[in-house]
């Protein structure tokens, strides 16, 4: 069981110990007969699941909040629950039901949701080099499971772990864990959510989750510049419709982060 204790700490330890992801099976991944042994499929999958578990603390309350909003917007229980499987994107589902509740035309609802989710193309580009060799059915499945929280955990494993040919099982593990907890918490929100008082401020768990994910990534000046500039732009661009400040702030952060890493050669990410 000592192994499990290690694993639950992995997410936490990751930035300082580059190879933490393979820690529980470091015995296997060291040199043996002169050849590199990579982590197996199930090791990858379960390490993904375990690393995703802490994030449920943040995702479950958000699912509850969404369940409540869905019913309040006039969707039926079934529609609210189905939207969680079809869209499977927390923030945009909230946007969807809020616009719907305000009688906004469906074309605008669709456009808004799409703009809110544009950031996923950045995630997609970011994992692309790790997944491109997989067969289509794998890429379709993983694309469906690619969310903020699963991406944030798995991209760390991709970038810092060993280059195992089974590493896509890690994203499968994080994705499925998140998917299941999102569906369950939506259902609970739909049927029992109205009993949760507003004063609990459960919505606050989302920014807190993101703080927990971003903070350990701020290892150098370029990262800090990316973070601060993204924060600044996303706040001053609040007047824009469709939550466009997300993509605008993100692009600013990426560009300035990259530019500064070139400028500050050596003090950068590598």
């Amino acid at each position: 069981m000592a192994e499990n204790v290690l694993c639950s700490r992995q997410l936490a330890d990751r930035p300082t110990h580059v190879r933490t992801i393979s820690k529980p099976h470091s015995g296997e991944s060291t040199l043996r007969n002169g050849t590199m042994q990579y982590s197996s499929k199930s090791e990858e999958f379960w390490s993904g699941v375990r690393q995703e578990l802490p994030l449920i603390v943040g995702v479950a309350p958000f699912g509850l909040v969404y369940g409540v909003l869905g019913i309040a917007s006039g969707l039926t229980e079934l529609q609210t629950i189905l939207l969680s499987s079809i869209l499977f994107a927390g923030a945009s589902q909230v946007v969807f039901v809020q616009l719907l509740a305000n009688g906004v035309p469906s074309l605008i609802v669709g456009t808004s949701v799409s703009v809110v989710n544009l950031r996923h193309s950045l995630y997609s580009a970011s994992v692309a080099s790790y997944l491109r060799r997989l067969p289509t059915r794998w890429r379709v499945l993983l694309a469906y499971l690619l969310t903020d929280e699963a991406y944030a955990v798995s991209i760390n494993r991709f970038q810092n772990g060993d280059p195992s040919p089974n590493q896509h099982y890690h994203l499968l593990g994080t994705g499925i864990t998140l998917w299941a907890s999102w569906q369950v918490s939506t259902v609970i929100g739909v049927y029992f959510g109205t009993t949760i008082p507003d004063s609990w401020s459960l919505g606050f768990v989302i920014p807190l989750t993101f703080i927990a994910l971003v903070t350990p990534l701020l290892k150098g000046k370029p990262e800090l510049i990316a973070c601060l500039s993204a924060a600044f732009v996303s706040v001053i661009a609040q007047e824009l419709p469709w939550k466009m400040w997300i993509i605008l702030g993100a692009l600013t952060g990426i560009i300035l982060g990259y530019a500064s890493s070139i400028y500050l050669k050596g003090g950068g990410t590598n």
């Binding site: 970011s126 606050f204 993101f210 990534l217 993204a230 996303s234 990426i254 982060g257 890493s261």
Partner: peptide
């Protein structure tokens, strides 16, 4: 490829700070 390293930081920050 290199600039994509900043994706997680920039996107998550742009969501969380306005919140």
């Amino acid at each position: 490829e290199h600039s994509l390293r900043f994706v997680p930081i920039a996107v998550l920050t742009a969501i969380l700070v306005p919140e």
